[in-house]
Design a protein around this nucleic acid. Sequence first.
DNA 1: CAGGATCCTGGGCGATACTG
DNA 2: CAGTATCGCCCAGGATCCTG
Lengths: 134, 134
Amino acid sequence: METSRSITQKIENEGTMCPSFQALDMVMDKWTPKVLFLLQDGPMHYMQLKRQVGGSTQKMVTQTLRKLEKEGLVTRTVYPTSPPTVEYALTPLGEMLQSAFQELLQWARIYTAQFQSMRENDSEANKEEDFHKN
Amino acid sequence: METSRSITQKIENEGTMCPSFQALDMVMDKWTPKVLFLLQDGPMHYMQLKRQVGGSTQKMVTQTLRKLEKEGLVTRTVYPTSPPTVEYALTPLGEMLQSAFQELLQWARIYTAQFQSMRENDSEANKEEDFHKN
DNA sequence: CAGGATCCTGGGCGATACTG
DNA sequence: CAGTATCGCCCAGGATCCTG
């Protein structure tokens, strides 16, 4: 280990040492997972995306898509039709990221299931509710 | 705002999307991945954690740990020694989450490698131009 | 050593209006 | 339809000081 270096402790090793976490931060914003998730089934128009992403605004959807495009994770294809049409699709790199997020999603389902069963165990343990299998 | 328009918003993956992404948002903050990553090799003291997480502050580390504890992803064990000692460790659920993040990390490494090779060898015929300056 | 309490700022994010 | 531009809120997150 290194000794105490400088008082200001400017962290330069973080920037150079862990580029993976940097890349991870790039992609950990609020809407990226949802956009990737929606695009996994194939290309989508902007409107479809905006509608199905749900709970977001036009600004955030566009911003997220632009960022993903710049990062090389989605492609943006403009069709010069009478009403402008833009299609977004995952790149191979984007598909890989989507797969990784899929793991997180899988965990989230398990986690949610755990806590739901925890909350409802004391009132009616054997309630005949619809247990959503996801 | 929920107007009459949003009723038509039928999300086919409704069951999977909403609660899962909520749980995902819970865990998508800045320092959670790094803390989980550090804890994967075994329990750690607060100080070790704070030091090795690098680039964060005491507040954020503590805050992240407290949140993870509340979510049932880490355990907090206090040893009543002469100087107080606190050990943090992953719960099984936390380990699962860590594994999921591992996938993201794996992707991040590939992603980083891609862009490094892109910069070294930018003779990419397929790419149009226009990479900066919009 | 572990972490609580505060103050403060940047920017993530939402809402609205306008364009081609 | 597919954005861009602008304003402003709000809070995640950083810095600093203090305690047991």
